[in-house]
Write a protein that binds this DNA or RNA. Structure first.
Length: 806
RNA sequence: GCCGGGGUGGUGAAAUGGCAGACACGCUAGCCUUAGGAGCUAGUGCCCACAAGGCGUGGAGGUUCAAGUCCUCUCCCCGGCACCA
């Protein structure tokens, strides 16, 4: 019968912690170094907390506990990212108002998080759909608006022609509406954007950030900076007569300009219909309609068959006056560059395939340094030497890019530009469950921002949120919301009915935590100055390019407006891996969501969190299975029994060595977020101590070592050992290097790279003696006898290696 | 397709270029028992087994005295791709 009762013990300590307000951080205690330990807040979904949340939050909490034991004033808040699509869809389906379902989910998840035994300071909780939060999200919008970083333009949305409604990407399955299966197309709407592109250059700079290399790489590639040229092509008729219109293209290969034999515009390019000639209109229009059913991912796939149609229009190549046809093709995206490209089939894979298919001319203008041409079989896409390029012949690609662009500059038909793949941030959502965009449209004054004093623009509660069929936000049906007075002239005006992307909510929530209780401002200047930036931010790698980029952007904007004095929100970033079930991401639709509750019920929170840690490296995740959880349950029992055992030591020297090696190992492992090997080290210690015996002093050390990983168990043992409440406020143990030193060493001996023997030597033995000893080892003798010894290697303290020849 | 990450026993995994498989789960044999979420002891990569040996980190090459680790190519899996969050 096990002695340790996790259920009872954990409930007891959770109560004591709460009664003592142990995890309520005094934000004004400046006596200790501050530590803002943050996890990405959860969405309060109907699935409640799943295994993946635990996998993320338990080690993150262990980290916070470790930092607290290292003497920091740790602030570990938690909240809920509660606006968004799922609650709205649930409401449409069941009629339950998002306010209600969200409140229920929040309550349940809070209870689950409480049972985890986390150090969350619930006094400072934020819930993004609460009015006291979203009024400040609206304030954030107004700041960007004030700075000229919010603007409106047309942009396409997924449109279901059957339901007459806007669809999220997630609601489009294989090009069809998830609900009615109708083929999804695109429709242009006027929408709000944030000018994140203005910050592209600054967002590329990660100086001073302790972030995973891969995350910075992904953001860099997402921003996608490239240096190139813009080239203006005058439009003309077949004979070359210009008509005053022009198309600008972006290219990184101005050196190939003489090889441009046609141009391609994105089907959505604003000039397309204007330049298309009568006889091509039908083809072009059909092609545009077809394109509306394709995703950008499919369109930009390199192995996809290139398609396009001729517009009937022509353009003049500014560098040689050549008249080239203007096509449209879906492999050109309107969102990148200028939405139009010059096509150089001899030196670009896609242009080459396109030219072959539509029998367009291929003109070679670049050759590899000395070798012959690769044409007509494959295009030559590398840099080289110019040919067929008039006065630029003989230049190399790099020089030519510069010289040709300079030549165009003189003619006013080109310039150097830096282009980014990053697009401006579309924040408009035609949905109910989000923060209303605080803008009013006045008949006289036009677009007017809601004055800050008038915030919040309250999200009305009684709204028919079923899709209306006109593609507008459900707020458009609430007359008391829509109709308002202009803040400037008091005349008749209408409110913006779109709400904000939930990424806006989550782009600043970390600023709110220390000031969560303040009702008169988004964040307190002094509190923010002291507590921000976040010292440790932990969350999934799937947020690398969106949430993490948006949060950096908003932070930079607020910094530039002098609202805060730092411009990066997260000093250190760590990603947890993803937990899958049968190889798939857990989701309700797949029916593979595993709840932690049953395991907590059976084994307790400590066992469960240690099992999740023990599964593998924190950053890697893995496929969920519960085989092996008994191993942790057994360990907890054995640990508890060992810590309660009477002072009795058979081998003090070996015990001390084990204790201090374990301190060293666990400290290192926790610092590196390698909780799996930290747990293993504790197990190894128990195995050793069961042989050597243990004394009270070592028990006190080991209990502190397990405290971040199994907080309830540690608190219980600590009390039984006579320690003062609470263990998290006792210092982290330090190891004594002298006690770890070994005197004897077992060295492996290799012959020709294969292990053939082992020798035991004193740690400070001389190289010569070691080599002699190694040669006498029976296993080694067998393999070197009668052979020529060509090389002898001794790697200090590591191994001996002989190389022999017959 | 593009960008990023990953592939090691029956399973989860460990390993500053230096003894591959620590620590666990599972399994096998034995012991013990207040029959439990038991406990203890021994064994457990594969082949061959008395030993000695051979093979082995998705696959194919390469560098090195020595490669899971570094390099080249390749296959497979996962995450992201801008309205899931």
């Amino acid at each position: 019968m096990p002695i340790y009762n996790p259920r009872e013990t954990e409930a007891k300590w959770q109560r004591r912690w709460e009664d003592a307000k142990l995890y309520t951080t005094n934000l004004e205690d400046f006596s200790k170094p501050k530590y803002f330990n943050l996890v990405m807040f959860p969405y309060p979904s109907g699935d409640k907390l799943h295994i993946g949340h635990w996998y993320n939050y338990a080690p993150a909490d262990s980290w916070g506990r470790y930092m607290r034991m290292r003497g920091a004033n740790v602030f570990e808040p938690q909240g809920f990212d509660s606006f968004g699509l799922p609650a709205e869809n649930y409401a449409i389906k069941t009629g339950v108002h998002p306010n209600i379902s969200i409140a229920q989910n929040v309550q349940y998840m809070q209870k689950q998080l409480h049972e985890m035994g986390t150090m969350y300071d619930w006094d400072k909780m934020v819930v993004t759909s609460d009015e006291e939060y979203y009024q400040w999200t609206q304030w954030i919008f107004l700041q960007l608006y004030k700075k000229g970083l919010a603007y409106r333009k047309n942009a396409p949305v997924n449109w279901c022609p059957q339901d007459q409604t806007v669809l999220a990407n997630e609601q489009v399955v294989d090009g069809r509406c998830e609900r009615c299966k109708a083929e999804v197309t695109k429709r242009d709407l006027t929408q709000w954007f944030f000018k994140i592109r203005d910050y592209a250059e600054r967002l590329l700079n990660f100086d001073g950030l302790d972030w995973p290399q891969k995350t910075m790489l992904m953001q860099q590639h997402w921003i996608g900076r490239s240096e190139g040229s813009e080239v203006v092509f005058e439009l003309c008729d077949k004979e070359g007569k210009t008509n005053g219109k022009s198309v600008t293209v972006f290219t990184t290969r101005a050196d190939t300009l003489f090889g441009a034999t046609y141009m391609v515009l994105a089907p959505e390019h604003s000039l397309v219909l204007e330049i298309t000639t009568k006889e091509h209109r039908r083809n072009v229009e059909e092609y545009i309609e077809k394109t509306k059913k394709e995703t950008d991912i499919a369109r930009s796939a390199e192995d996809r068959e290139k398609t396009g149609v001729f517009t009937g229009a022509y353009a003049v190549n500014p560098v040689n006056g050549e008249v080239i046809p203007a096509w449209i093709g879906d492999y050109v995206l309107v969102t990148y560059g200028t939405g139009a490209v010059m096509a150089v089939p001899a030196h670009d894979e896609r242009d080459f395939a396109f030219a072959k298919k539509y029998q367009l001319p291929i003109v070679e203008v670049i050759r590899p340094q000395k070798s012959e041409t690769t044409l007509p079989h494959t295009p030559y896409t590398e840099a080289g030497v110019l040919t067929n390029s008039e006065k630029f012949d003989g230049l190399n690609s790099e020089e030519a890019r510069k010289k040709i662009t300079e030549f165009l500059m003189k003619k006013n038909s080109g310039k150097f530009v830096v282009n980014y793949k990053l697009r401006d941030w579309l924040i408009s959502r035609q949905r109910y469950w989000g923060a209303p965009i605080p803008i009013i449209y006045c008949e006289k004054c036009g677009e007017v921002p809601v004055p800050e004093a008038d915030l919040p623009v309250e999200l009305p509660r009684d709204v028919d949120f079923t899709p209306k069929g006109d593609g507008k936000s459900p707020l458009n049906t609430v007359e008391s919301f829509v109709n308002t007075k202009c803040p400037k002239c008091a005349g008749q005006a209408k409110r913006e009915v779109d709400t904000m992307d939930t990424f806006v909510d989550s782009s600043w929530y970390f600023l709110r935590y220390p000031s969560a209780k303040m009702s008169d401002k988004p964040f307190d200047k002094e509190m923010t100055k002291y507590w921000l930036p976040v010292d440790m931010y932990i969350g999934g790698p799937e947020h690398a390019c969106m949430h993490l980029l948006y949060a950096r952007f908003i932070t930079m904007v607020l910094h530039d407006m002098k609202h805060i004095d730092f411009d990066e929100p997260f000093k250190k970033l760590v990603h947890q891996g993803m937990i899958t079930k049968d190889g798939a991401k857990m989701s309700k639709s797949k029916g593979n969501v595993v709840s932690p509750d049953q395991f907590v019920e059976k084994y307790g929170s400590d066992v469960f969190r240690m099992y999740l840690m023990f599964m593998g490296p924190f950053t890697e995740g893995g496929d969920w299975n519960d085989q092996g959880i008994t191993g942790i349950a057994r360990f907890v029992e054995r640990f508890y029994v060992l810590m309660r055992s009477k002072d009795k030591v058979a081998n003090k020297e070996e015990l001390d060595r084990a204790v201090h090696k374990t301190i060293k190992k666990i400290t290192q492992d926790i610092e590196n977020f390698q909780f799996n090997t930290a747990v293993a080290a504790l197990m190894e210690f128990v195995n050793t101590a069961n042989k050597t015996g243990i004394d009270h002093e070592s028990q006190l050390v080991m209990t502190r070592l397990i405290a971040p990983l199994a907080p309830h168990l540690a608190e219980q043992i600590w009390e039984e050992l006579g320690g003062k409440f609470s263990i998290v406020d006792h210092s982290w143990p330090a190891f004594d290097p002298k006690l770890i030193v070994e005197t004897q060493l077992v060295l492996p001996v290799q012959v020709n790279g294969k292990l053939r023997g082992q020798i035991s030597v004193a740690i400070d033995e001389k190289k010569e003696t070691i080599l002699e000893l190694a040669k006498k080892d029976a296993g080694v003798v067998r393999h070197i006898e009668g052979k020529t010894l060509v090389k002898e290697i001794y790697v200090q303290g590591k191994l001996v290696s002989f190389v022999v020849r017959d």
